[in-house]
Simulated scan of single mutants.
Amino acid sequence: MAAHRALAGVALAAAVAGGSGAAFAQAAADPAADLGPLTQRWLDDAMSRNQPAGLPLRMEVSVGSLDSRLRLAPCARVEPYLPAGARLWGRTRLGLRCVEGQTAWNVYLPVTVKAFGPAWVLINPVAPGAILTANDATQAEVDWAEESAAVMANPELWVGQVAARQLVAGQTLRQTMVRAPHLFRAGAQVKVVAQGPGYAVTSAGQAMSAGAAGQIVRIRMDNGRVVSGTVNEIGTVVVAL
């Protein structure tokens, strides 16, 4: 589902890069008064033409306003762009610069991008370390862009996972809220498989930290050597040689 979020952001970025500048190709005695409505129309048009087929999100964009005390020189054409590090997701900003005018200027308009789609919302509080079950959440339409963490729209991503912190009813389940359950604790004896080209050697060692599937952990072997490996789904630590 993170891919859906990224795809939405890419689509909007493409819209900004390839959208029509015609709506901005007009002079104005007070450009600041027109930037908000013009930007809104430009973004709406760009989104309607660049929305990827099959994306399960309903996008909405709203444009804020500049400081009313700001006075901009007349401009025949204003060019929109995304500032470095910005993205069209959640609360962000869009740059606007005069490219045809006697006086060059550059301003930023606040923009809010909402992406409504199906997600899972908690109906029960969940204590830290508790395992989530299918009965803990119900499906609802939420704004995926309200927070930066990716929404887990597929129940397989969170059912059976452990709450990483205290969770409350009404929260949308996102990736940062859960972690994989620990398969062993620090100090436990674990199976270690050292793999190389065409061979595998099995031994045992002591875990130096708790381990969950997919994590990289350090293991102290019987000879005192410390190795690092990846925990697989059954709790074996795989060391690549």
Rank of each mutant, 00 (worst) to 15 (best):
A17K: 11
G18V: 04
G18T: 12
G18F: 12
G19V: 08
G19C: 08
G19F: 05
G19K: 00
S20D: 13
S20I: 09
G21V: 15
G21C: 07
G21R: 10
A22H: 11
F24N: 05
Q26L: 14
A27H: 11
A27N: 14
A28K: 00
A28G: 14
A28R: 09
A29N: 09
A29P: 05
D30L: 08
D30N: 15
D30F: 05
A32D: 07
A32T: 02
A32H: 09
A33K: 05
A33T: 09
A33E: 02
D34Y: 13
D34K: 10
L35M: 01
L35G: 00
P37H: 04
P37A: 02
L38T: 04
L38I: 12
T39S: 12
T39A: 15
T39Q: 01
Q40W: 03
Q40D: 15
Q40G: 11
Q40S: 11
R41Y: 13
R41W: 05
R41T: 10
W42A: 11
L43W: 03
L43H: 02
L43N: 02
D44W: 05
D44M: 06
D44C: 08
D45G: 10
D45I: 09
S48F: 08
S48W: 01
R49A: 15
N50T: 06
N50S: 15
N50A: 15
N50V: 07
N50L: 13
N50D: 14
P52H: 02
P52K: 01
